[in-house]
């Protein structure tokens, strides 16, 4: 699609990596500041769209274990398990818990259970963008059933 070699290099070498880092950063800061799984997922999704526009396959497809449909299910599962988990300890669904632990060298770290919900959302958004790219962005191979009546 994009013919320029320089743009391709730029996207492959720089934008992909920087974009991924920004996406991860945004996802983690989402608890008390603007950001979160949805925004982070969209940024990573935008990185994949850029790769697609540069004429490459989005990288995540190279690993069969991470095919977008499984990723979608995994993300959804993570989010829903976080939703349901408080029920087992007598809380309400979606209730969030905060633990704080002290790690050597790093210091005090706060872990919030709703972060896992954010990760789930992150995976879902990324998977949806990848599914759109693979199903609508390529010709054929998207729907397994061929048309039953003639192609007009």
């Amino acid at each position: 699609m994009i013919k320029s070699k320089i743009l391709e290099e730029l996207i492959d070498r720089w934008l992909t990596k920087v974009g991924t880092l920004v996406a991860i950063f945004i996802t983690f800061r989402g608890h008390n500041a603007p950001g979160g799984g949805f925004a982070g997922g969209l940024i990573l999704g935008a990185v994949f769209v850029l790769q697609y526009l540069a004429g490459q396959q989005p990288t995540i497809r190279r690993k069969p274990i991470l095919n977008p449909e499984r990723l979608l299910g995994f993300g959804l599962l993570l989010a829903l398990v976080t939703t349901a988990a408080p029920l087992f300890v007598g809380g309400a669904p979606l209730e969030s818990y905060i633990w704080s632990i002290t790690l050597p060298q790093i210091g005090k770290v706060k872990i919030v259970s709703s972060t896992f919900f954010d990760f789930g959302v992150f995976f879902v958004v990324v998977a949806v963008v990848l599914l759109v790219l693979t199903f609508l962005g390529t010709r054929g191979g998207a729907i397994s059933h061929e048309p039953t009546d003639g192609v007009g």
């Binding site: 449909e69 299910g73 959804l76 007598g90």
Partner: peptide, 23 residues
Amino acid sequence: SSLVALPILIPLVAAALMLVVRN
């Protein structure tokens, strides 16, 4: 009251699980 949400949650968890398990 803790049971009220389960008819929503259980099918959703099942749906997510079935995107991973494709048999």
